[in-house]
Design a protein around this nucleic acid. Structure first.
Lengths: 223, 223
DNA sequence: GACGATCATTGATCTGGCGCAATGTGTGCC
DNA sequence: GGCACACATTGCGCCAGATCAATGATCGTC
């Protein structure tokens, strides 16, 4: 209790389904930019894995306010949080390819195959972990902290390459609705980070990180 | 898309473990008010079910800011989000009795017993559902909406009895840290609701609901 | 390759909720 | 049963971020 040493931030690994077991039952689907893949309340008969592109998972309020719960990027699974009906709406950020799995076949496979079961469980656990991290951002962080947290998240979700240029497949509005801010505040914070030399913004859908340490410091990611 | 009819709010039922299978492996534990049951980062060797009292599940930032992810009330399970280590800190709201289950025994049981497995899965799914609902509150709702949403949540989690008096086992600070507000704002909103005749406040740990319809209207719970 | 539309950026002003401070109110403990 | 302490409430000024408004950049498309 005395030594509040930096608790090793437990990072939940993104689950990887065994290709062997699941590969056979998936079918490829294509979605155009801004198309709805499924809506909140829809019968949850399919789940998906992003191959290319990206997906926003969100909830809408009757008056149009929107909260994005997560972004699914290549390699990520979504739509597995079934309970008969989807709890979130899924929309393509841009033209997106995904593999879709029929729910009944997934469930059957889960009953038979211990590995598949473990990975379904891991997917759910990862989503819960992500949502809990999101709660502290929305509930207790400043605009600066939110934006830098988000950029750090993009850095860490970036696959393989170690380039300082990170892809930003979503719009400013999407970022705002993910972080509980407005579009204007997102712009102002990004501009401020640019002015301070922490990042550069070569275009709408990319950010170059010049000072990752400063970014992480500003994000207070080290809880 | 035209008819934005009120999407039937999908309510995730709180899971009930089959008493037969789990009853045998649980042991009773007692925790005093404000005692830590487990801390974020602790080895997740046990999970719990609240019998009486209540528990807050929270994350802390190094500077002391706190976000409560959930409250576990009698009948609720917590500490099942394992991945080797607990992602949240669990503290007793007041003197609390809980049944605790050893992780290795739970896992073994889950492998053997289909019903137990389904219920472990349902617990995780319920927690994810709750976290996603929490996100829209923290990201997009006003103080008034947050406080009324919280009271509606307490109404709906209240077991059995249909009394208009609802128990509030947590402090104003706990409410604030759950809703992403300050203690003062909680007080002000509760006072305003009292002034408007929607509720009465007979004591620190109770609220009498005079106009539940108005409360629900103010909470925008009907997304 | 110019038009229209959407998205992004910046400035000016406004405000909901915060921070601070002072005062009430239980509530547990000796 | 009275004292001390933690919790709750209310007032007041302030500020981070929202809102409103105008301009600039980018992109698809005919």
């Amino acid at each position: 209790m005395y030594a509040l040493q930096a608790a090793t931030t437990q990072r939940a690994p993104r689950p990887k389904f065994s290709n062997t077991a699941l590969g056979a039952i998936g079918t490829v689907s294509l979605f155009e930019r801004n198309n709805t893949i499924f809506a909140e309340g829809d019968d949850a008969d399919r789940a998906y894995k992003v191959v290319s592109g990206g997906v926003r998972l969100c909830k809408m309020m009757p008056d149009g306010r929107r909260q994005i719960a997560a972004f699914a990027l290549p390699g990520d699974y979504f739509g597995f949080d079934w309970l008969g009906h989807h709890a979130l709406t899924a929309e393509a950020l841009n033209d997106t390819t995904a593999i879709s799995y029929a729910r009944n076949r997934l469930e059957r496979l889960g009953d038979e195959d211990h590995d598949v079961r473990a990975e379904l469980y891991a997917t759910l656990r990862h989503d819960l972990w992500a949502a809990q991290n999101h709660l502290i951002i929305l509930g207790r962080q400043s605009a600066r902290e939110r934006v830098t947290s988000f950029l750090v998240e993009l850095i860490e979700r970036r696959k393989g390459d170690n380039l300082s240029t990170i892809a930003v497949p979503m719009t400013r509005r999407d970022m705002a609705d993910y972080l509980g801010l407005t579009v204007e505040t997102i712009c102002r914070e990004l501009s401020a980070l640019k002015r301070e030399g922490v990042i550069a913004i070569p275009g709408r859908h990319a950010v170059i990180v010049h000072d990752e340490a400063a970014l992480r410091r500003a994000s207070m990611a080290d809880d």
